[in-house]
Write a protein that binds this DNA or RNA. Structure first.
Lengths: 127, 127
DNA sequence: CTTGACAACGTACAACTGTACGTGTAGATT
DNA sequence: AATCTACACGTACAGTTGTACGTTGTCAAG
């Protein structure tokens, strides 16, 4: 396990866009960002450059542009980030975070339903 | 809503200890930290000082020591942090994070049971 | 009174973050 | 060809973070 420098909040935000697009250039990321997230082209460029330098993204040349794609499984990146949060804010226990989410963020009926299904599946499999 | 400077990961880690103790001095925090979390006395001191400066903790003098206690509700701090994470990594949706927690962190049978109870309560109240 | 222990407070400092500008250059447009 | 677009790449720069040392002053033990 090579120790990858951790990605900052904003970097992760950009990485997520790349993940969701599968592969993306600076412009793609910029236009895929939430409308209310104002960010300069060159700022996105910098984040992508840093993510590449840190080993989170692979870069490839397409014409005169750089196109980035994940270099490590998004899930594993998310896991590291979430684990860290869990460790520092919830003593390493996942349940309190789930509780927080349920109580403080009021899941919709729909989400509750989906969550229930998830639980059912889990219990099924555990049996 | 006064804009409070955000607390860093390590600062939050320290804040959490204070929250869990209710009120604490540097030494208290230091000894309450997980055994594997090696941190210098003065490092803890710095974090507490910064948390105070940022308005997260109130400080009071007891003898020659400073004792800190929450200045804002922990829950609201946690909410801000979690909301930010949600926004940047999960498009603002809580359920994907819950799913991540369930799948990637394998809740124990016990936790699943507790979660189920939580859900039941929710559904009850939603009626 | 002298010596230790312990804590406050100021200071340090390199690395990392957020955010962006300027310069150069390869295609597209006129 | 001259000009306009886009983008890459280097650079910048103040603020934040992680981590800790050194100085100073006080209470307690000898």
């Amino acid at each position: 396990m090579t120790k990858r420098a951790s990605a900052s909040k904003s970097e992760l935000e950009i990485a997520r866009v790349v993940w969701s697009l599968g592969e993306a250039g600076v412009r793609d990321v910029l236009t895929a960002l939430p409308a209310d997230r104002k960010m300069d082209f060159s700022t996105v460029q910098t984040y992508l450059r840093r993510l590449h330098a840190k080993g989170y993204l692979r870069a490839r040349r397409v014409g005169r542009s750089n196109v980035y794609r994940p270099a490590v499984k998004p899930t594993s990146v998310v896991r590291d980030v979430v684990d860290d949060l869990l460790e520092r804010l919830f003593g390493g226990h996942a349940l309190p975070l789930v509780q927080h989410l349920i109580h403080e963020r009021g899941l919709s009926d729909d989400e509750i339903e989906q969550l229930q299904q998830l639980l059912d599946q889990l219990k099924e499999r555990k049996k």
